[in-house]
């Protein structure tokens, strides 16, 4: 049976994301998809959905949602709680990493995540896919403007589930050197792997700018003949300050890439905040493979620890979440940070 989820207030930095728009990068269409596919998979997993089912990604402030026509079952992942506004005027706090069911006419005010949060819907959102994906790519109009999102009605009698917070690993961000590490001096490469870099406020779904010691280019220079890029690639333009590319990045770029973050560490990048410090460590393909396997195990293990949620919610958690909602500050992120085009190779 079909239901609808109405977005009553849009929040900030909220988009529809799934596993991404694969297979169209040769015509300039970015990959897109969840910045943190592991957290999206966690939210989907609490509902029994496929890992890459389309849900809502929240970067800054969560939306106010309302179920229409039929009950809608929802799961939250990430450091992001919510308040369930019931018919009759009562409400209760919903902890992160749990599911709930909205009856028709009931609303859910989702809070602000620390990092990135995900809202999954049982059965996944059913907005029409475009080029094989439901992911929003607002910059080029691949966006679903509807504020009412089609979805499945909740299956009856499945009960609610909750889990502990899923945590990503820490330590240096692991990268594979290159493909243009030869465009940097030995001193720049040494700096890159030994000094911390600070995350700046210039951060959106296309990428984030880092600040640190200027990375000097070798005589090969700061321009290359534009070639393919991918989320995780670390471009260094002439000013020597790295740009870390994320899910909505362009398909090609004209700056040398000093290194590229391995897939297993891409989800960690989604949660970086201004003034966070990060370091980089070079690994090879074998270590990257081991890291992917370890991450897959961590998610699978987490999913086995999901447990039925107590009815009515936990009063202590409720207090914490009320504080989270009250503290929903908005960061001054600039949506137009990326005026650079790739350069013609001349």
């Amino acid at each position: 049976m079909s239901a609808r989820l109405a977005i009553r207030t849009p929040g900030l930095g909220v988009s529809i994301q799934d596993g991404g728009r694969h297979g169209h990068r040769h015509i300039g269409v970015p990959l897109s998809g969840a910045l943190d596919p592991v957290f999206l998979a966690a939210a989907n997993g609490l509902l029994g959905n496929p890992a890459d089912g389309a849900g809502l990604e929240v970067l800054l402030a969560g939306p106010l949602l309302e179920a229409l026509d039929e009950p809608v079952r929802i799961a939250l992942a990430g450091a992001m709680g919510a308040r369930h506004l019931r018919i009759g005027g009562t409400s209760r706090a919903v902890p992160a990493w749990s599911t709930l069911t909205l009856q028709p006419g009931e609303q859910l005010q989702v809070g602000s995540p620390r990092g990135v949060g995900y809202i999954a819907i049982e059965g996944g959102l059913l907005t029409p896919p475009l080029l094989g994906s439901r992911s929003t790519y607002a910059r080029a109009g691949l966006v679903h403007g509807a504020t009412t999102l089609p979805c499945h009605a909740a299956r009856p009698h499945t009960g609610e589930w909750q889990n502990d917070a899923l945590r990503h690993g820490d330590g240096p961000i692991r990268v594979i050197p290159g493909p243009q590490d030869g465009h940097f001096t030995a001193a720049a490469l040494d700096h890159f792997y030994t000094t911390p870099f600070r995350v700046t406020r210039q951060r959106d779904r296309m990428g984030l700018r880092l600040a640190g010691p200027a990375l000097a280019h070798s005589p090969l220079g700061a321009d290359i003949v534009s070639d393919g890029v991918t989320p995780g690639a670390i471009q260094v333009p002439a000013d020597g300050q790295p740009i870390l590319l994320l899910a909505d990045c362009q398909t090609v770029g004209g700056y040398p890439k000093i290194a590229t973050v391995i897939r297993a560490d891409l989800p960690r990048l989604a949660h970086l905040q201004a003034d966070d410090e990060i370091r980089f460590r070079a690994v090879d393909a074998d270590e990257a493979a081991a890291a992917r396997a370890a991450l897959a195990c961590r998610l699978a293990d987490w999913l086995t620890r999901a447990r039925p949620a107590p009815a009515g919610g936990d009063p202590e958690t409720a207090l914490l979440l009320a504080a989270n909602l009250a503290g929903a500050a908005v960061r001054g992120d600039d949506p137009h940070l990326w005026p650079d085009e790739t350069r013609p190779g001349t």
């Binding site: 990068r25 003949v225 393919g228 991918t230 897939r263």
Partner: peptide, 15 residues
Amino acid sequence: EWVPAFRSVTVHFDP
């Protein structure tokens, strides 16, 4: 997928 560019082809794969 693979992305032809000016003088290169980038091949994206599932490792």
